[in-house]
Nucleic acid binder design. Sequence first.
DNA 1: AGTTTCGGTGAACGCATGTTCACTGAAAGG
DNA 2: CCTTTCAGTGAACATGCGTTCACCGAAACT
Lengths: 216, 216
Amino acid sequence: MSSSPVPRVPESRSERKERTRRAILDAALDQLADESFGSLSLRRLTKQVGIVPTAFYRHFSTLDELGLALVDESFATLRAMIRDVRRGEPAPDTLIDRSVDVLSAQLDANMAHFRFIGRERYGGVTVVREAIARELALFERELATDLARMPGLERWGAADLALLAGIFVNLMVAAAGEMVSPEAEDAAVRRGIEDTLRRQARMVVVGAAGWRPLGG
Amino acid sequence: MSSSPVPRVPESRSERKERTRRAILDAALDQLADESFGSLSLRRLTKQVGIVPTAFYRHFSTLDELGLALVDESFATLRAMIRDVRRGEPAPDTLIDRSVDVLSAQLDANMAHFRFIGRERYGGVTVVREAIARELALFERELATDLARMPGLERWGAADLALLAGIFVNLMVAAAGEMVSPEAEDAAVRRGIEDTLRRQARMVVVGAAGWRPLGG
DNA sequence: AGTTTCGGTGAACGCATGTTCACTGAAAGG
DNA sequence: CCTTTCAGTGAACATGCGTTCACCGAAACT
């Protein structure tokens, strides 16, 4: 369970420091599967890492700072995802399926990050909640510019594109939030959630194509 | 701040008990504006109520039970809302506006309930999260049967209606979650969130009317 | 009037919390 | 080789935690 900093092979100081920092972030993500950030305990956290409580302060000056680091990391994952989608040619009719496939793959690889965003988006710790809101707004704008290139949406105004992007982000984060539940560790349940997301996204985007192209 | 049980007018025993129970629920809802249920403290809670910590156990056998009571209460509010919408004649073209108006009014009157649902839906306390998921699934089904009566959706299958209902619930809970932020106490920000919800709901339902009527 | 019921009290319990401080020992740098 | 740097240590701190228990006093019941 604990990934303690045991230098089997001699390490440089900075290597060791980075490894401990990683271990703290990983332990936090692990414990955040079962509780909210607001109820994280420094002592339980450091115990899992295998260091003494005070050593934590060598890496973060406060627990809130840990939270912000987790937000950064989680949104790095999210941005990597959208880059992954763009990398494939944007054949518009397969875009949704491709997007959901990528999301599904990223959910597998980085479940803790998505769970963190879903859980703390409206969570109790103000500084974390605000950081997520900020990043999510940024992500939403990125998504809106991507949507602008889709067939049927070329002539949409920025306001409508923003609304649509907001809908997709809500669907995505909600799906990520569903994955929080222990049941979702069952592959079949996971598939069901993904499938619902896929169908809902398709429903929205196909519907949107029939939406009046301009106006606010 | 504290609404302590001071019997200015003589009360019956059951009246007093009910009043204290209410005070506990209200104090909890109040404190849950700033933190998650998982980090609620029995001592801070009872201090705000104006009773001694042990007195709490005269009303709830555990904090989790308090959480479940809050879930019940919050969904009673939500159900009252959908009843309110139905009470007006279901003139389909004004239904969205009417729904969002009702939601807005209910958000004013019962903000703490919606905030609770939004915040704990994916929160850290399993028993509360599961109770909300259960109630939300129920609400979703109710909504789906209402949607079935809307023009353009009469011939939809149950599966598609469920998907659509899920989209609406996500939009609604997300909007409720946005209200969590202290900024949302500014009326203009509130209006903005409501307006976004209104437009997104309209976008989805108008789009949905253009969706293929059958299939899975 | 006498007895029972019960919501609220206050002390006490053992334990976990975040943060402080002077410290150690090995890596880094002169 | 000697000095400086610094991640991690361990004791100590005051504070807050949930829960227990015997107790009180007024309402409720007979």
